[in-house]
């Protein structure tokens, strides 16, 4: 049947039939174009993920990945009784919540500033992009140096202004280590937030603001009544992206405070078990838990989009 249809495309047949054959040919070509990408993605993402989930149910060790035994949900059981793991979960959640909140508020302020017309706007936009472009490891080191307890410029500045009486060991003290990490993360990722929000702001038609201005609505009210509802889609996307990204935080924490328990994130916990302690089974279980949490959040987000589109 198919060949008959294809042969028919060259003949001046009825247009509808010719079209359907053509589109079928196009669909087949589309799958051919997709195939290499799908194969590679399956190899580097799908397969390793499945293996990780499988390892989570075994007692595999890094020294010999070929010899292991199936242990069922034992790793997850151990995980649920490890206070260090729960501490890592709590750290990750606190980090995510605080830094994403701060980034949203600050990013919104920067986006609003970038949205107004003034001389040197290009300069400001370039300046804002700099923290984004700096590798995370480098920004962690730069800030660790600024946060240095003896020679750091942050302590020096705060002492001069009189905000603190004695130098603070920012990254070493358990009271301030998480705050230091959050400060660096906010510094580094707010630009991304601001740019996404700016793109949202630029899609709002000017006339709406004109109308508000003519009606004499004050700027604060314009922001809450007009701007905020209109950029809500962009805002939600930005927050979701940043939240999912913050949940998997690894490099910043690793470089600033290492495997320190007080700031350890879920990714750090999993990697320490997996690589440092060579316990692939247990480490994979921790990784699988993080994956599950992020997967659930992604599914909720995608469903919310669907729902929002239909409504």
């Amino acid at each position: 049947m198919a060949t008959a249809f294809e042969a028919g495309t060259n003949e001046p047949g009825p247009p509808s039939r010719r079209r359907s054959a053509l589109s079928r040919q196009r669909v087949r070509a589309a799958w051919l174009f997709l195939a290499p990408m799908l194969v590679v993605l399956g190899l580097v993402a799908g397969w390793p993920l499945l293996r990780t989930l499988w390892f989570a149910l075994t007692d595999a060790s890094l020294a010999d990945l070929d010899r292991y035994e199936f242990v069922g949900p034992l790793n997850f059981l151990y995980l649920s009784t490890d206070p260090d793991w729960w501490r890592a979960v709590r750290n990750t959640l606190v980090f995510t919540f605080v830094s994403v909140s701060l980034e949203t508020v600050l990013g919104m302020m920067i986006a609003l500033a970038l949205h107004t017309r003034f001389r040197g706007r290009g300069l400001l936009r370039a300046a804002v992009l700099i923290p984004w472009a700096i590798p995370t490891v480098v920004s962690a080191k730069m800030w660790a140096w600024m946060f240095n307890d003896v020679f750091g410029i942050v302590n020096e500045l705060l002492l001069t202004v009189g905000a603190i009486a004695a130098p603070i060991a920012w990254t070493a003290s358990p009271d301030t280590a998480m705050a230091a990490i959050i400060i660096v993360d906010v510094w580094k990722t707010t630009p991304f937030m601001a740019l996404l929000l700016l793109a949202g702001l630029q899609m709002i038609p000017e006339e709406i603001y004109e109308a508000a201005r003519i009606d004499g609505v004050n700027p604060v009210e314009v922001f809450f009544r007009v701007t905020l509802p209109l950029i809500r889609p962009a805002l939600v996307v930005a927050i979701v992206f940043r939240t999912l990204d913050a949940m998997r935080i690894f490099d910043l924490v690793y470089v600033m405070t290492g495997n320190n328990r007080t700031t350890m994130s879920m990714s750090i916990y999993a990697r320490q078990q997996l690589v440092d302690f060579q316990d692939v089974g247990y480490g994979s279980a921790a990784a699988a838990m993080l994956f599950a949490i992020i997967a659930v959040m992604t599914v909720i987000y995608l469903m919310a989009i669907r729902f929002g589109r239909e409504a």
Binding site: V280, A287, L290, F291
Partner: peptide, 25 residues
Amino acid sequence: LLFTVLSVSMFPQIAVLSGMFELVR
């Protein structure tokens, strides 16, 4: 398919670490 691709980009890297280690070896 598009959503699958998008969700892969949201993967935590740590979730593929042990599987990737095996693949690399």
